[in-house]
Lab assay of single mutants.
Amino acid sequence: MQRVNMIMAESPGLITICLLGYLLSAECTVFLDHENANKILNRPKRYNSGKLEEFVQGNLERECMEEKCSFEEAREVFENTERTTEFWKQYVDGDQCESNPCLNGGSCKDDINSYECWCPFGFEGKNCELDVTCNIKNGRCEQFCKNSADNKVVCSCTEGYRLAENQKSCEPAVPFPCGRVSVSQTSKLTRAETVFPDVDYVNSTEAETILDNITQSTQSFNDFTRVVGGEDAKPGQFPWQVVLNGKVDAFCGGSIVNEKWIVTAAHCVETGVKITVVAGEHNIEETEHTEQKRNVIRIIPHHNYNAAINKYNHDIALLELDEPLVLNSYVTPICIADKEYTNIFLKFGSGYVSGWGRVFHKGRSALVLQYLRVPLVDRATCLRSTKFTIYNNMFCAGFHEGGRDSCQGDSGGPHVTEVEGTSFLTGIISWGEECAMKGKYGIYTKVSRYVNWIKEKTKLT
């Protein structure tokens, strides 16, 4: 034993070699072989497995989906700052455009905790909710729209109204504003409101030439003092309507412009014939205590009207009353817009006519005020429907199939267009061939041609 100890002390290297040989010859039971080890760690190889990531292109799944990435790591994937920024906006807080917040056709661009709407022409605001041009839906104005110097929408209202708090709607500024039905039992019968379409306001006024200088022999019209197929109006439903009495009662109609003036057809009036105007009328054979009678003290036909040349060209006249009318729910003026808007309103496509005229061709006159909704007829169809001249200051309205029309005794009465609950004068009943005849239409004086003249002559002093 002493000898062994001496050998170990003198030859430590020998001992180490012996131990190493023993270990190498022993069977290893701690580690699995290569094949079995792979069965336990069965993990798919990654895209760049075996390579240094710093030297390969980034992978979106590896960089940002398996674990949260930084902007720089995302930049490695896209290799483009702009594309990385677009991805980053949604990656950080989701897609803010998912709810489609942009209105009126706006395009949404996502941002971090926010979004941006790219608005089409005519709109602005956070969600493109603000109209900035009158060309689109009248700028959301209830009545009139004008573009300011910086191309912003400025709404306005006709006389007797003021802008509401929203700067879009119009509200009454006087007790009985024009064009409004205020009798409670008839307010439910107000005709369907007309909503502004998209309009090209630059070209809204037709490029028409008034044929002022045409000389033409007097034409022989049949029954051209021209509501057939209409309905009984309720008291106060058309408070701007008046009836004219002269040699015979209810020979023509008219509309209240203001307390002192009536507008009617020029062919209705004769110099030297006494005319009485009755406002607030409903049943011409009954006294309903809503009527107001006034005498006409002055007749002003349009300066281009000449019955000797043509009885229905420039067929418009103004009547001055001896005493002002007292405005109330049964006696209310009709609204008159400017030339541009009167023309736009007419193009809405349908209007209402009213009167006490004959209820059928050569038949009896109506006792109760009649009204009828009539569609506008395109000019080409209008011209083809008659052998008589249709001037540019006239328009056609009615039904091709016949059966409904204005008729004798309705002449001078109103053709009105309702705009968001307020009625505007767009025409004056003038003439036609018979009444409600198939293929024939009622012919009306186009008020847009005469609004400046009306307003100039009827100013209240």
Results as ranks from 00 to 15, higher is better:
344 I>A: 15
168 K>A: 14
257 V>Q: 01
105 G>I: 02
445 T>A: 05
233 A>Y: 06
118 W>F: 08
452 N>I: 04
329 S>M: 09
455 K>I: 07
461 T>K: 10
436 A>Y: 08
87 F>R: 15
9 A>L: 14
220 S>V: 13
295 N>Y: 03
114 S>N: 08
176 F>H: 09
44 P>I: 12
75 R>F: 06
306 N>K: 10
330 Y>I: 03
248 V>G: 02
435 C>Q: 03
108 C>V: 02
307 A>N: 08
387 K>H: 15
44 P>Q: 07
157 C>G: 00
24 L>R: 02
375 P>F: 06
51 K>I: 07
65 M>A: 12
347 K>Y: 09
404 R>A: 10
155 C>P: 00
165 E>Q: 08
378 D>Q: 07
69 C>L: 04
419 V>C: 04
103 L>N: 11
114 S>Q: 13
68 K>P: 06
449 R>P: 15
75 R>G: 15
225 T>V: 12
317 A>C: 06
411 S>G: 11
256 I>D: 01
99 S>N: 15
238 F>S: 03
322 D>K: 00
153 V>C: 04
155 C>N: 00
395 F>H: 02
68 K>M: 10
10 E>F: 10
398 G>N: 03
14 L>P: 09
329 S>E: 11
8 M>Y: 07
106 G>H: 02
39 K>G: 12
327 L>D: 01
246 G>C: 03
51 K>G: 12
280 G>F: 02
368 V>G: 11
164 A>M: 09
435 C>P: 03
438 K>I: 05
56 V>Q: 13
359 V>A: 14
113 N>P: 06
260 K>T: 01
199 V>A: 06
185 Q>Y: 12
281 E>Q: 12
408 Q>G: 14
427 G>W: 00
23 L>N: 01
410 D>V: 13
431 W>M: 12
39 K>V: 07
208 E>K: 10
330 Y>M: 07
155 C>I: 01
143 Q>F: 03
204 S>C: 05
249 D>L: 02
303 H>A: 10
405 D>K: 09
346 L>K: 03
127 N>D: 07
378 D>L: 04
236 G>R: 06
51 K>L: 06
70 S>K: 10
169 S>R: 09
406 S>T: 13
172 P>S: 09
445 T>L: 12
101 P>M: 04
16 T>D: 02
264 T>S: 05
145 C>Y: 01
96 Q>G: 13
105 G>V: 02
355 G>K: 08
338 D>W: 03
207 A>M: 14
337 A>N: 01
110 D>S: 15
52 L>N: 15
262 I>P: 01
26 A>G: 12
314 H>V: 03
405 D>Q: 14
150 D>K: 08
159 E>W: 06
36 N>K: 13
352 Y>I: 12
117 C>L: 01
188 K>S: 13
284 I>Q: 07
162 R>D: 07
431 W>R: 08
34 H>L: 05
14 L>N: 01
262 I>L: 03
237 Q>C: 04
201 Y>K: 11
197 P>D: 09
214 I>T: 14
122 G>N: 10
227 V>T: 08
332 T>Q: 04
209 T>A: 09
293 K>S: 07
196 F>P: 10
95 D>F: 10
68 K>E: 08
28 C>D: 02
83 R>E: 06
355 G>H: 12
379 R>A: 07
441 Y>Q: 03
98 E>I: 13
344 I>E: 10
451 V>Q: 03
393 N>D: 07
398 G>L: 04
396 C>R: 02
394 M>N: 11
239 P>A: 03
131 D>T: 13
84 T>N: 10
410 D>Q: 15
302 H>I: 02
379 R>M: 14
